[in-house]
Structures are given as C-alpha cells and as structure tokens.
C-alpha cells in the first residue's frame, strides 16, 4: 500500500476504536431516552466518576483490574437506581425543559463534587494492557484499542441477547413501546425505569473505564458524553442500532477530519468536528438515520 492510502486506513481503524467508545456512551443515552423520554445530561459525569472509582480501586486498594471493573459496574448500577428514585421520579409528567434542566443540574453537581472528592489533578491509569503495539498489514494498533473493539462488540451482543430473550429486557422494550399497556400487562414500570437507569449507567461505566486507559483521568472526561450527542442524533434519538452506527460514524469522521484538516486550520479540529456534524444533521435530517419522523397531531 502506498503512504496516502495507508494513512487513510490508519485513521479509519483508530477512528473505529474511538467510535466504539462513542457507541457505548451513545447506547447509555439511548437506553434511557427510548424508555423514559429523558435525555440524561449527567451521563458524562457517570463516565468520569466510574473512571475515578476504578482508578481508586486499582491504585489505592490494589485490587486486580477485573475485580475493580466489576465493582465499578455495580457501583454505577446502584448510582443509576438512586438517581432515578431521588431526582427523576419527582419530575414525572413535568415539561421537557424542566427534566432536561434537572439532569443538567445533576451533572454540574456531580462534576463539582467529584472535583472536591478526587481533586483536580490529572491521573494516569495503570493500564492492564501490554504496551506493545500490534501491526496488521501496515496499520499500527495499540492493544488497548483492540480490547476496546472486542469488549464493545461483546457488550453489544450481550445487550442484544438481554433485550431479545430476558424477561426484564422484554419488560423494558414493552415499557419503551407503551407505558400504559405495559402497566396493564402487569409490568412494574417504576422498577423497569430504575433498571434501565442502572443498565445505562453500567454501559457508561464500561466506556469510562476504557476512556481512562486511553486518556488521562480528570474532570474533562465528562466532556466525552457531550461529544457523543452527535452520535445519538445521527443515529436517530431512539434507535439502539442507530446509536452504535452513529457512534462509529462520528469516531471515524472525527479522526479523518483531525488527520487531514489539522495541518490546514491548526490544532483542535477533532474536538469541534462532532458539533459541526451535529449542527449539519439537525439542519438536514433532524430525525437522524434510523429515527422515526415525528408527526405532530393536534
């Protein structure tokens, strides 16, 4: 392969790795959105807090990585249930604006509390993955990137099976479809909501742990969730496959734009590209690739 093409493929593949993380984050958003019609702006803080918890477990308590991951996921799930019970349930039936603002309030509250508890320093996660890079047909990948792709794939398959075959997954799909009917069928909608928040937070926690391996851990980690907004919009707000494809697409676009445009405009293109894309999607096709076009009835 010649240099130019190789450069393109290198950007493409590392874009997929970033996109996988976006997909996980987007998945967390979409799960809540689909079932409860709430866009949780505090998702980024969950990512960040999970990264901090995992760091704390591994460095201070010297737990093995896998155990730390499991405990972090459990903590995130518990946090999800608590959030739903204490913050969101009193807001049932309130206008969209109020609910959005409650989650924004929650997000800045959590972020500053994390700052107070864990400090503002940049922490470096002791990576459990070997440092050696893997070379495949000229494309260089780090082991972390490969693990990110594998785990995301595994999680997505697990989610798919959960929604398809488990009783709770079926209840969740039913609730997302029509809350009243689900209630009539004997599904406890309250419990389903709490479980959905838990599942969504766990998905965010996994993304957080991997992000901690790729980036430094600091309060800025929560910003990743904001970069995942374009992914959910691109996928169409309420579609789970859409979130995954949207996440991958945004990762790839961001990396390609960063790779090619940074030399022309100057640094930082990577960080704004998702937002420019978001703005464009909203202008052209607000309901995304897989979302249903909203028809308003009066």
């Amino acid at each position: 392969m010649d240099g130019g093409l190789l450069f393109f493929f290198q950007l493409l593949v590392s874009g997929v790795a970033v996109g996988c993380l976006y997909a996980l984050v987007a998945l967390g958003f979409v799960l809540i959105l689909k079932a409860t019609d709430i866009l949780n702006f505090a998702q980024g803080e969950v990512i960040m807090i999970s990264a901090f918890i995992c760091y704390f477990l591994v460095t201070t308590l010297h737990l093995p990585f896998l155990v730390a991951v499991l405990i972090t996921c459990a903590a995130a799930g518990l946090m999800g249930i608590l959030t739903e019970r204490l913050v969101l349930r009193p807001m049932l039936g309130e206008p969209v604006f109020a609910v959005v603002m409650v989650t924004i309030g929650l997000s800045i509250f959590l972020r500053s509390m994390t700052g107070i508890l864990f400090g503002h320093n940049n922490l470096v996660f002791p990576s459990p993955f070997p440092k050696e890079t893997v070379k495949m047909g000229g494309i260089i990948l780090s082991q972390t990137q490969i693990w990110i792709m594998i785990s995301t794939l595994a999680l997505i398959i697990a989610f798919f099976l959960f929604f398809k075959y488990s009783r709770m997954g079926l209840a969740m799909r039913g609730t997302a479809d029509d809350q009243n009917v689900a209630q009539l069928m004997g599904i406890s909608v309250k419990r389903v909501f709490a479980m959905i928040w838990a599942v969504s937070f766990v998905s965010a926690a996994v993304a957080g742990i991997f992000l901690a391996n790729v980036m430094v851990i600091n309060l800025g980690l929560s910003f990743v969730a904001v970069s995942a907004f374009p992914a959910i919009i691109l996928g169409g707000l309420e579609s789970i496959p859409g979130a995954i494809i949207g996440g991958l697409a945004i990762g790839i676009i961001e990396n390609l734009a960063g790779g090619y445009l940074d030399q022309i405009i100057g640094g930082g293109v990577k960080d704004v590209t998702p937002f420019v894309v978001l703005f464009l999607i909203l202008m052209v096709r607000p309901y995304g690739l897989f979302g249903k076009k909203e028809i308003e009835r009066v």
């Binding site: 309130e94 109020a98 603002m101 309030g105 972020r111």
Partner: peptide, 22 residues
C-alpha cells in the same frame, strides 16, 4: 473551600427548585 462548592450549590439549587418550587 474553593469554587467547586459554588458550582455544586448551583447544581443542587437547580434540582431543588425544579423539584419543589418550579
């Protein structure tokens, strides 16, 4: 004490007002 406490207070105030005094 640092700025983080103020921001935390904003977050808390937003939530409390929306829940109890819209």
């Amino acid at each position: 004490y640092d700025d983080a406490w103020n921001i935390a207070a904003f977050g808390l105030l937003i939530m409390l007002f929306l829940i109890f005094e819209p």
